[in-house]
């Protein structure tokens, strides 16, 4: 089974067809996707800026992370579901789109950046939790995260201008 036949099968799903045929489905899914990404970016921004050294409503970085991360994850889940449905409605075109591929790459990079922070820098958070300026590794993770998520938003918007619309 090649990638092309899998993409074709996704495209042929009754659900994908329903999204193509209902004129309101695509804009509604897009709106949910934008809402989700603004929640993801908005909450990550507050955490990343705290890591870089800008004050948030919490002195403790760890408390801020545990308080906002559930919102980020729920919003990310909504972004995956709405994005997955948008993808399914036009699977071959998205898979062939350069900006779409780059966007997935940037999301993966942002995930790896977060995982590295979690297993290394965050381990020592007790030592710098309430410092106004966290250590270099934490600041670097914050800056990198902001750059990657900004790139995700730019690439996402660019898909709308470069995608071959097949329906």
């Amino acid at each position: 089974m090649t990638l092309q036949t899998t993409l074709q099968q996704i495209y042929d799903l009754p659900l994908s067809n329903a999204i193509r045929e209902n004129v309101n489905a695509f804009p509604l899914l897009e709106s949910l996707h934008v809402l989700a990404i603004t929640l993801v970016f908005g909450t990550i921004l507050i955490v990343d800026l705290r890591l870089v050294g800008y004050a948030s409503h919490r002195r403790s970085t760890n408390r801020l992370i545990t308080e906002l991360l559930p919102f980020t994850w729920v919003a990310f889940g909504l972004a995956i579901i709405s994005g997955g449905l948008l993808f399914a409605s036009n699977a071959m075109a998205y898979a062939a789109n350069t900006e779409f591929r780059l966007k997935l790459l940037m999301i993966a990079a942002a995930g790896i950046n977060m995982a590295i922070f979690h297993v290394s820098t965050q381990r020592t958070i007790d030592q710098w939790d309430e410092d106004a300026t966290p250590p270099f590794a934490a600041r670097a993770a914050g800056v990198l995260s902001l750059l990657l998520w900004t790139a995700v938003i730019f690439l996402g918007r660019w898909i709308g201008f470069t995608l071959d619309v097949l329906f």
Binding site: L39, F41, G42
Partner: peptide, 12 residues
């Protein structure tokens, strides 16, 4: 969109 994300984060 980046700016509306800042609005959503602050408002939330």
């Amino acid at each position: 969109i980046l700016a509306i994300a800042v609005v959503v984060g602050s408002a939330l």
